[in-house]
Each structure stands twice: as structure tokens, then as C-alpha cells.
Design a protein around this nucleic acid. Sequence first.
DNA 1: CAGCATATCTTTCCACTGACAAGATGTCAG
DNA 2: CTGACATCTTGTCAGTGGAAAGATATGCTG
Lengths: 184, 184
Amino acid sequence: MTTTRGYHHGDLRRALLEAAVQAIGESGPAALSLRDLARRAGVSHAAPAHHFGDKAGLLTALAVEGFDLLAAALDRADGDLLAAGVAYVRFAVGHRAHFEVMFSPGLYHGDDPAVLAARSRAWAPLRSGIAALPGGSERDALAAWSIVHGFATLWLAGALPPGIDPDPEVAARSVIRRLFEPGE
Amino acid sequence: MTTTRGYHHGDLRRALLEAAVQAIGESGPAALSLRDLARRAGVSHAAPAHHFGDKAGLLTALAVEGFDLLAAALDRADGDLLAAGVAYVRFAVGHRAHFEVMFSPGLYHGDDPAVLAARSRAWAPLRSGIAALPGGSERDALAAWSIVHGFATLWLAGALPPGIDPDPEVAARSVIRRLFEPGE
DNA sequence: CAGCATATCTTTCCACTGACAAGATGTCAG
DNA sequence: CTGACATCTTGTCAGTGGAAAGATATGCTG
């Protein structure tokens, strides 16, 4: 909890973003209510507007934060493509609220400069990891991104058939490896 | 099904579903309004409740319709996995409204029996196509589904980097092939 | 320290939404 | 014709997003 130090609230912006993550985790992005966030933060229902303009503005900030977190997680894989793929899935499962918003462009201002910049920051590590691979092509990068993104999305949607390994990282590792060793 | 014919409206249920597809195509599933659908269909704001109960009920019906459409499209590939993958992407792009709802489980009653049945109908063709492949495993099915679903989702989200083939089917075919011929 | 400009937050208001209840209307069986 | 029923309308309520205008704390300038 942030200290009630400094301004009226302390750091309302941060508090609202954290409340949003929690609320989305409970009921999904569609059911998000600005007034509910304001209640959670202990301020009036109009306070959020000052920081984010409107609901889409708040979700835009959340998307930027998400892309930055994702970029950091992928960077930590340090060129290891399999590790990066697993990190992608780990991020999606561990930061479900961010992830769901990030890839629901109808919810926020996708053409916001901050979003565009953060998005490309997240895309860079995967791209360079592919480029470092012998014979790595644009198509390989697209295939790698598609497979991890698809797996993560299906996992979050609960659309995967039963019988999958209950640990998303284990299941993801197996699926991603399929991209490198098709035979086995 | 329950398509009663020849009442006040004619077939309000159908009209509402089609209006929903159109409205979602314009503004996304989050901005969907039952009252707007009622206006589009020329009925009062409370008429939809009688057919679908509530908003989630309407989206449940839309999801079932979507899974059935998808199952039919995949069946038409007739065991050809590459064709099925392309058909998956074609469905997602061509029936964006259905697709977005289908994989947003927070929006509808995902545990509805009709949904479960339709979902497994859609999953069956891909599964059997994999099984028919020499050495086809559960992991292969998962990888195939992940890659097409991921590509379709990223395409719809507009998250793909520039420079991709503007025709989603062409780009998808190239990516999917990566699963079969990793070398080239 | 004093006074002011500004960022932050509150109060008030409006149009809209989803959901419910009760009544009206068309359709069909007998 | 009549009653039963599904269909649709009207009226209502709490909750929401957003705008406008006022209140208050904070930091800056002198």
C-alpha cells in the first residue's frame, strides 16, 4: 500500500492502476468500472478522470505498463528463444489483467505514442533473438510469436482441452519445442 | 432450434444476433448495448430479454453460433491440416465478431452445455487431422492450434509488425508451413 | 513568510445502460 | 369464440461514464 504522503491521496494514479489490475483479475476488463476503482482507492468517482481523462485513458496506461513489463521479462531471457517463449506465457498467466487489456485494442487508445513505443520495445527482444539464429527469418519470428501468443491466449480463455499439463510453463515449453524439433 | 416463425417481429432472435454481429464489428464486444440492438431491430428495449435472458445470454448464443460456423469451416478442409489452419484464420478475420466473443469467456456463459458441445465439435476436426498424420501427437495438435490461434488473434489485434503480407491468408499459410518444414 | 497559480479532488448533474415488473398484443389450440 | 400462451411494450430503478463547476491542498514566486 502506498503511503498517504505528499498529495491529497499520495499517489492516486498508481493506486488506481493497481486497483484496476485487481478488479480486472476479479471480473475481467469488460466489467471494469471507474467508479468502483475510485471506491477502492477511497476517492470520489470523478477523481480518476483527472489522471487518465476517461476509461480508455486508464486502460491505455495499463497497456503501456504491461508492454514494458513484458519487454523486461523477455529481455531477461537474454537471447534464449525457448526461455523467451516460456517467459511470454509466464507473463500472460502471471499478469493476466495487463495481458488481456494489451491485446484488446478496442478497450484503449492503441495509436497512443506511448503504446506504440512500448509495444515495439516488447517486440524487439524476440526479433533480435530470431535474427541471431542461423537462418532465422521474419517468418520464424512470426511463427514463434504466434505460437506462444496463441498458447497463452487459449490457456487464459480456458479453451484448451482437458489432459494438458496443469503447469502452463511446462505445457508451453513442450509446445514451443515443437517449433525447433518437429520430428520428436 | 428455437427459431419460432411468424410472430410480431418475424424472427427477432435472428435479427438481434445479426444486429449484434454488426454492432460488435463497429465498436467491439465491450461497447455492445442491448438497447442499441433493440433499436436496430425496431423493437422496444426490453424485447431482447425475452429471447436471451440477459446480455451474457445473447453473447452465449453468439458464441455457440460461432463455434458451429468454425466447426463447419474446419470440416470443409477435410483432413488437410494446412487448409484447416488457413480456414481457422479466414474464419477469425471474416467473422471477427463471433471470434472475439468466442474467446472472451468473461462475456458469456462459458459453461453452458450448448457452448461446451459446440466447442468440442470445432476442436474435433483439428484433432482428427493430427491423429491421421504419421506420428501425430497431442503436442502437435496443441502446437498447431496455438500457432493458428495466435496468428489470428495478433492479426485482429493489429499487433503484428508492419511489413507483413496484407492478405492474412497468405501470411498465415507461410507461418503455418513453418510447423511442417522448419528448414526452409 | 505572504500571496497566487496550479494540480488535485469533490459535488452536482445528465444521458445512457441492464435488469426487473406489470401490462398490452398478437397467435394458436380447442 | 375463448382462453392459454408466447411475444412485445411501458414504466421504473440502481449503476455507470462523462462533463461542469466549485473546493482545497501544494508548490512557486516574490
